[in-house]
Write a protein that binds this DNA or RNA. Structure first.
Lengths: 205, 205
DNA sequence: GTCTATAAACAGATAGAC
DNA sequence: GTCTATCTGTTTATAGAC
């Protein structure tokens, strides 16, 4: 039985997937070159085609995987039994932490979706992006006078905007604020509390 | 003297720039084809090179123009003499209204900056992205106990995140919320008030 | 200035040896 | 499975006629 913990013992297919994820998320589908991916994986171009037939097929593997590793978590937390304010905290905690390790993901996903919106359709269907339960919870809190009225769409937009924008706007923020890499990392660490506070204060009656 | 109001009387260079802006902002630099731009402008590929030498040069013209038409306005409003809460309202009004007419701009700019962060440097130097005055105002309001403490970086991130994210995340929002184009437009119209309210409520002591 | 035709460079994909 | 060499189609860029 293979030692699953030996991270350096990757087979070729895994090497390719890791390299492809790095190059695609950094440069986008159109900007990525099969040569770049092969070099990153330390193998030959031809092997990419041997394992994945085409650039499109390879990309689909990466894109689907990325989407599946991020979107469902939001639905899971939002549809849970947790109190509203705890959900806010969990979402900001999870997304800011995950994206700190993979900061290229948001701009990659949103750029590709913006160029090819159809890509989302299958994935959404598959995972059933049902926010019905969450909408009910939100409406209950409003009806009981616990929070100010807000539509589900705006609540979710606000929450994700506050969490994700630092990663999307990184070069702009670093430029406008004159931050170096170290300073930017500190700034990101502060975001979790800022997001939670901003969301909760804006909802308080 | 030419009639500057006759919008249909564009010379070839203007036709190219208009077409290039449309194609580049929609598909990004790597995804854009010179053929697409020529077709959009109703002219021949060779003419693009006659006027702009290369795809890179043409892109620079567009990118610089786009940056100059959006960034300085924020600095202008933030560095003005207006009260803090009015600045919030002006920013959300200006950016949500402008971007409604050109919704591709944010993802375009942020994707290109993410692939080539150096692009920003010259532009920022040129326009002097100085937020010193604004930081002083923010600190004064905090010191006088008028608003809760918040760093300039987080204030600006929050404000721009709330304004810009709907355009960046459009396909995702439409997918998750099951919105059609008409519904999305209504949703965007509501954002201006949501942004102002969210920002101001989160700052209130 | 504007076009057609073509060159030159590149990128994705395949053939075939090992 | 993995490599080198090559093919095929695409894309940017140029030459040259009008």
């Amino acid at each position: 039985m293979k030692n699953i913990l030996a991270t350096e013992e990757l087979n070729t297919e895994e090497l390719i997937l890791r390299a492809a994820k790095k190059i695609f998320t950094h440069k986008g589908f159109e900007g990525a070159r099969m040569k770049d991916i092969a070099d990153e994986a330390g193998i030959n171009k031809a092997l990419l085609h041997y394992y994945f037939r085409s650039k499109d097929k390879l990309f689909e593997s990466i894109f689907d995987g990325v989407l599946k590793s991020f979107l469902p978590q939001a639905i899971l937390i939002l549809s849970s039994e947790l109190p509203l304010f705890q959900k806010i905290d969990r979402i900001s905690e999870y997304y800011i932490q995950s994206l700190s390790k993979q900061p290229d993901i948001p701009i990659f996903v949103l750029h590709e979706l913006s160029v090819n919106p159809y890509r989302l359709i299958e994935n959404i269907k598959e995972h059933g992006m049902d926010l019905h339960l969450f909408s009910q919870q939100l409406q209950s809190e409003i009806d009981e006078g616990k929070i100010r009225p807000i539509k589900t769409a705006h609540f979710i937009t606000n929450l994700f905007a506050l969490c994700v924008f630092p990663f999307i706007g990184r070069p702009l923020i670093m430029g406008m604020m004159n931050l170096n890499d170290t300073e930017f990392n500190s700034y990101v660490l502060e975001r979790r509390q800022i997001v939670t506070e901003t969301m909760i204060r804006s909802l308080k009656v």
